[in-house]
Amino acid sequence: MPLIHIKDVVKTYDMGAELVHALAGVSLDIEANEYVAIMGPSGSGKSTLMNVIGCLDTPTSGLYDFEGENVGELDDNQLAEIRNKKIGFVFQTFNLLPRSTALHNVELPLIYAGFGTQQRKERAENVLSDVGLGDRMTHKPNELSGGQRQRVAIARALVNDPSIILADEPTGNLDSKTGIEIMQLFVELHRKGNTIILVTHEEEIAAHAHRVIRLFDGKIASDETVENPLVYEDR
């Protein structure tokens, strides 16, 4: 059973004057522990696909099974629970709470999961250390660099030990050097057994993935396994 099974998914936006087919019939399966890069020109439906996979959005039609469960049959609360426990989001714009410390930002999914204070703190501190921010836990986002902010966001995505990490252009707001550091982090996470889907514009970044899906006009234009993914030099 694939982790993700998507069949003929269509997402249409009714813009009054015209219908926009953000996804025009997409089918794909993703197995656990894959590292998938999604590419395509702007407006090709990458974010829409990520939102559907992340249970943030519901398709207009088509089937989506997540871990064998038909997502279309779940109610809002159940979707929220899946997002909380099974999915870790990393956004292009980091989306951290500006007035909260790194630690509290990372604790947030655990709060929604109902963990107690002590457990939350321990778990969040561990994950922050894992992404290299052990000494920045009490800093607020505006006291951190862009790369550090994205690390906080990645820690937040990891903290509930999700089945899959979804990153929509995670390096889009970072300079290329920092971007590479973040990509190294994703490779490392993948090596540790995480499943990762990552949207990117840059071929160089995609080259590290094990599978590249290209979208065009809401359809899959190609879906290729990379024979020899690029490996980063050891840091």
């Binding site: 929220a80 929604y112 937040r156």
Partner: peptide, 13 residues
């Protein structure tokens, strides 16, 4: 945007 983020992280309505 914060509300969107919280919902993405699992906050219920």
């Amino acid at each position: 945007k914060e509300i969107g983020t919280r919902k993405a992280l699992g906050a219920k309505s």
